Structures are given as C-alpha cells and as structure tokens.
Simulated assay, not measured.
Amino acid sequence: MARQLTLDVTLRDGTDFQTFHPGEQGGLTLEAVRGLARGAGERQIYLFGDAGTGKTHLLQAACHEVAEWGGRVAYLPMGMTAGGGPDVLQGWDGVDLIALDELDRMPWEPDLEQALFNLINGVRDAGGRLLLASRTAPRLLPVALPDLGSRLFWGPVFQLRPLTDPQKCQALIARARQRGFDLSPEVCDYLLRHHRRDLPSLITLLEALDRESLAARRRLTVPFVKHVLDGG
C-alpha cells in the first residue's frame, strides 16, 4: 500500500525487501537495512552507489516495513528541497524512520546544511532511525559545515554495486514469477541487448510487456517483445 509522505512523495508499490536483489556483495547491506527497519540493528546507515543499484528500493522497502506495523515514516528525495529552504527538514518530531534519498542532489546551502545537521542530531536524541542515500560517498559531498560531515559517518557506510548481466536476468525471472508468468532466458537476453540496462528500467519494461501480453493474449516471446518495442 502506498503511503503519502512529505512534499507529495509517494512510496512505490512493490518496493519491499523480498523484491530486492542484492547480487553477490549486497547481502550484508540488505540485512543491515532490514535490521534498522525492524529496530534490531543500526540506527543510521548511509548507502551510496551508481544509479540503478537499488538505493531507493532499500530506502522505500524500509519505509514500507516500518509503516506496516503502524510506525511513522518520512521519505524525501533531497533533490526536491531546492527552493524549499530549511523548513522542509523541520517538524518531523515523532517520526520513527526518516529516509533521505539523493543527498548528492541536495542544494548545499548554509541554512539547509544546518537544518540537516539539526535533523540528524534530533533523530539520534529521540531514538529514531535514519537512512541516507547518495550516488557519492559521504566524504565526496560538498559539505561546508564540518560538524555535518562527521554526522554522516555516525553509522555504517555501504556501497552498492551494479548487478552483472546474469544477476539482472535472475532478478527479471524472479519478478516475472511473482507476476505469474515464466520469462525465458532468450527474452531476458534480448531485453538486455535492446533496452536501458539498469535494473529499475528493465523491471519497468518487463511489467509493461506483461500488460501488453495479457491484453494481446500472447506469450512473452522474442518476436512479441520486438513487435512491442518497435511500436507495432
């Protein structure tokens, strides 16, 4: 169930821990974020990695997990704070989990940096939980406020890496099974060779192709996929 959050941001359906594919090196990160969401592990985690590596998925999965047992959550892509001033990071007292995405897109203005510094301190003092995500490591962010830079390292820092092509195929085949159909390796290979290669885009395409195949009452084969992608 999607839940309306700060600045008209809505959690996506299907972004749960069960649908996250960590690859060979992401299992520890997955378990750490799951533990934070369940209140059984770290209280602050910083994730970084290239686009499409699953940062947003993990942040939203944690929000879904906390919201399912009635907790209060706030999810905010920091790129949306431009022009909003420090007020967008205030008034979140009593929130059980705050997830701040896209820190690399945050406008690094003095007032907003101070507001983020105060937020991190407030979350820790109140016993809340904080998830941070960026395309860059915390030390590479253009932080001018020295004390804020140190606060970003209050919890563990995990790097997420892109999946290999075989791992992407495994993820697509698993998502297809969740939707009730089988995806052949041939179709999977075709998608990887003829579409954007990041996993979120591939999954979005797979779901669209599934809807097309249901409407046309045809199996998801390479000729059918080619027909759809060519605009037929």
Rank of each mutant, 00 (worst) to 15 (best):
T6Y: 05
V9C: 15
L11A: 09
G14R: 03
F17D: 11
H21S: 15
P22S: 13
L30P: 06
A32R: 12
R34K: 12
R38T: 07
R38L: 14
R43F: 07
I45L: 08
F48P: 02
H57E: 11
H57C: 11
A61G: 03
H64C: 03
E65H: 12
V66M: 09
G70N: 03
G71N: 05
R72T: 14
R72C: 00
A74R: 15
L76V: 10
G84H: 12
G84M: 14
Q90V: 01
W92I: 00
G94Y: 01
D96P: 07
L97G: 12
I98W: 06
L103Y: 10
P110C: 04
D111A: 12
F117Y: 15
R124Q: 14
R124D: 12
D125G: 03
D125I: 01
L130R: 01
L132F: 10
A133E: 00
A137R: 13
P138M: 02
L145T: 12
P146C: 06
W154C: 11
L160T: 07
R161T: 13
R161A: 14
T164L: 13
Q170P: 00
L172K: 05
L172N: 05
R175V: 13
R175H: 12
A176F: 04
R177P: 00
R179F: 05
R179D: 09
D182S: 14
D182Y: 06
L183G: 03
S184H: 04
P185L: 14
V187T: 07
L192V: 00
R193T: 10
H195L: 01
R196N: 08
S201D: 11
L202Q: 15
L206Q: 08
L206C: 05
E207N: 13
S213P: 07
A216G: 07
R219I: 00
V222W: 10
K226S: 03
V228A: 11
L229V: 04
